[in-house]
Amino acid sequence: MSTQNNPNQGYNSTPDLTEEEVQRISDGFKIISMKMKNAATGEVLWQCDDWNLREGEVKDVRFPKKILECSEVSRELVFQSGEEIKYFQLLQRIKFHGQEIESLYFRFGFVIPGSTNSWDQVIYADTEGMMPAEVLSGNLVVETLFMSGDTVVHRSFYRIFYE
């Protein structure tokens, strides 16, 4: 995985949501699936259609080692929202042995009430400078914060193993 864009580009200020509004958005929000693909060929390398996590739970995911050999990986996340969200944005932090090595920010803006949406991000990898799978495996944790403005409405963690 390569370095992505600057995370400090969120909304300057957005109207505060009431606690009830945050709760409703949060209750209606659900990650449906995640897919890793070789972006050069479209081939699906890994897929998970059962992403039911409790708050704070860390999910173990097992990617095939050959993902590390792809110079262009595409990651597709499918999520549902029951509620309308006006200033939807995402911040993802990748930690290696607890230390942040990369972050990724994406601004979605408006989310339609009752919608299912997908976000497919192509990630360019530096296959030359890549650490070996044995070193990375089990030591990479990805934290994803889904936010409405500045308020976190959903947080998920997954730990990556390569096999």
């Binding site: 864009n5 972006a39 479209g42 919608s115 299912t116 976000w119 497919d120 991000q121």
Partner: peptide, 29 residues
């Protein structure tokens, strides 16, 4: 969009929201 990404086009469901394809490289998006 799927065809442009060389992906399988046999299982596409009607879109109930948005689908985003995002590419970033060297600061270009």
């Amino acid at each position: 969009l799927k065809a442009l990404s060389e992906e399988d086009i046999s299982t596409i469901m009607p879109t109930q929201g948005f689908n985003i394809k995002a590419l970033t490289q060297d600061g270009f998006k």
